[in-house]
């Protein structure tokens, strides 16, 4: 029986549920390996070879190499694990979030300074007219 997912209609959001956790297991465990300074050096020196030591899918490896964070999320990555990749490059959560929203870092910061992304129109993929207008 499929899992009940009452959150499936939230737009632009990946919920790290059981299915995603199973799909992303090795992707996330690879990320965890970057907690170790030696591993970070090996990864930086030769990313492809380092990734080949993990039983990840080729799509997952490609998404890592391209730093395609939405792609990694869709393939089961969890943001706190993926953070090990951008943290090891000295990048912030704001940098990563901006990339995921398709905004420049400056535009994203300006949005946050102005109070963030409003929930209005961002609650449902389908639903009220208000939500549809803003989608």
């Amino acid at each position: 029986m499929a899992l009940n997912k009452p959150y499936a209609d939230i737009p632009g959001t990946f919920v790290f549920d059981a299915d995603m956790s199973r799909k992303g297991y090795w992707l996330n465990q690879f990320c965890m390996s970057l907690m170790n300074a030696d591993n970070r050096e090996h990864f930086k020196a030769d990313e492809t070879t380092y990734l080949d030591n993990w039983t990840m899918t080729s799509e997952q490896k490609q998404a890592v190499l391209a730093r395609d964070y939405n792609g990694m999320l869709a393939l089961g990555g969890n943001i706190y694990f993926l953070a090990k990749i951008f943290s090891s490059e000295g990048k912030s959560f704001v940098y990563a979030a901006a990339r995921m929203t398709g905004l420049s870092e400056d535009a994203y910061k300006a949005m946050m300074d102005a109070g963030g992304r409003t929930p209005d129109g961002n609650r449902y993929t389908t639903g009220s007219n208000l939500d549809k207008e803003h989608r």
Binding site: I10, P11, G12, I79, F93, A96, A97, T101, R117, N122
Partner: peptide, 12 residues
């Protein structure tokens, strides 16, 4: 929200 295209959501 730290992830996905909806990142940056704030609900004061």
């Amino acid at each position: 929200q730290l992830q996905g295209p909806r990142a940056g959501l704030i609900n004061q």
